[in-house]
Simulated scan of single mutants.
Amino acid sequence: MKLGIVGAGSWATALAHILSKNFQSVILWARDKDVAENINQNHKNDKYLPDILLNSNISATIDLEEIFRQDIIIIAIPMQHIRETISNIKLKEEKMIISASKGIEIGSLKLPSDVIKESLDIPEENIFALSGPSFAKEVAKELPTALTLAGKDIQKAEKLQQLLNTKTFRIYISEDIKGVEIGGAVKNVIAIACGASDGLKLGNNARASLITRGLYEMTKFVPIFNANPQTIYGLSGLGDLVLTATGDLSRNRRFGLLIGEGYSVEEAIKKINQTIEGIETVKAIKQLSEKYNLELPISEMVYKVIYEKLNIKKAVDLLMNRELKKEFL
């Protein structure tokens, strides 16, 4: 079996490395010709995972169509670029496509699996989502990681489970693809809030409260996408939220930390210098909250701090002095 991966960032490269043991060959698609050449000539991706020597059966290309000639395809690029990247691809035979991207498309308010289905014009039974608590660097170093692979066709999911599982990369399966994708999207926004709280040195109590109330905000999306509430409390929901909100390898958390420490949004983005999914996802969450009249106070404050220049300390005051209410309402 041959694996093709759309993307050559840190997550795509880590997936290539860990899964190369299970596939005859793995090929990454890179936008940047220099990244592709670095992988092919030196078996390294110095731009995104400089400390990892890649296995010899991994290569890279700038030809996107070559990726879609492989047996199985993983899409691991920023959510907002999926549609423009793959919409011109014409599949000549049935393929199983796995989304490893996280977010909600601005404007359409669709999840990755919906965008992939529309862009490639393929049955939803052939689309899967891979998500959970997984820093790319730790995956590439073969530290223990557990994720959820979700898809409507559970028999196909079982086959993929066998193909993707390794000694250090444990795969669980689920039929709730929407629930898995909700967790992967919303957790990035809450992680920004947690990072900001820590940047302000508000303490462990504040961080724990933000994670818990952020998880509750995540549940608000379940009926909108007809997802299973139980999924939110699994690896792709609670698990990924805890990791991203507390782990310093998280770009979303680090962005929030910088904001809390007094950097401007523009300065923080420049210092991170990689895609920070929560910045874009919070736009889509704002649109969803207005469309469905959702009360999402943490996400709302993140939006206002990023896009309306609300002072971060004022945002904390607004959150703490909201109208008193029942915990679950």
Rank of each mutant, 00 (worst) to 15 (best):
E280G: 10
K117N: 04
G4S: 10
S25Y: 12
I211K: 08
A206H: 12
L53I: 15
V35L: 07
G103E: 02
Y48T: 06
I192Q: 04
V186P: 00
K286D: 15
A150W: 02
E105A: 05
K90Y: 12
A60R: 10
D114A: 13
N88H: 11
I72Q: 02
A196S: 04
Q161S: 14
S87I: 12
K178W: 10
S59F: 13
A129T: 00
N273H: 11
V265G: 11
A12C: 03
G256E: 03
L111I: 11
I104E: 01
A100C: 04
I272A: 04
A268W: 08
K313Q: 12
I86G: 01
Y48N: 03
I39Q: 13
T231K: 02
N226A: 12
D63T: 14
E94R: 15
L318Y: 13
N57V: 07
K33A: 08
E65C: 08
I18D: 05
Y233T: 15
N311F: 08
S289Q: 06
N311S: 07
K2P: 15
K270T: 05
G256K: 04
K141D: 00
I82Y: 03
V265N: 09
N204E: 14
N205P: 13
K325V: 06
G199C: 07
K117Y: 00
A14H: 14
K220E: 05
H17N: 15
Q287W: 10
A76T: 05
V6M: 11
D63N: 15
V222M: 10
T168L: 08
T244I: 00
M218V: 12
G247Q: 09
Q274T: 14
V302L: 05
L202I: 14
I72K: 02
A227Y: 12
N311R: 03
T275C: 01
T244R: 06
N40I: 15
A208N: 06
I39D: 09
I97H: 02
I224V: 07
D317Q: 10
T166H: 06
L147T: 09
T219W: 01
L241C: 03
G262C: 04
V115Q: 02
S101T: 04
F128P: 08
N40P: 00
I232S: 05
G183Y: 01
P112M: 13
I154F: 15
T166I: 12
I77P: 01
A196E: 04
I116L: 10
I192W: 01
E158K: 15
E290P: 09
P144S: 15
A8R: 11
L318H: 08
L64P: 00
K178R: 12
V242K: 09
D248P: 06
I276R: 06
T281Y: 13
S197M: 11
I122V: 09
A284M: 09
I154K: 09
L147R: 04
K152L: 15
D248G: 08
N22M: 07
E66V: 05
V242T: 01
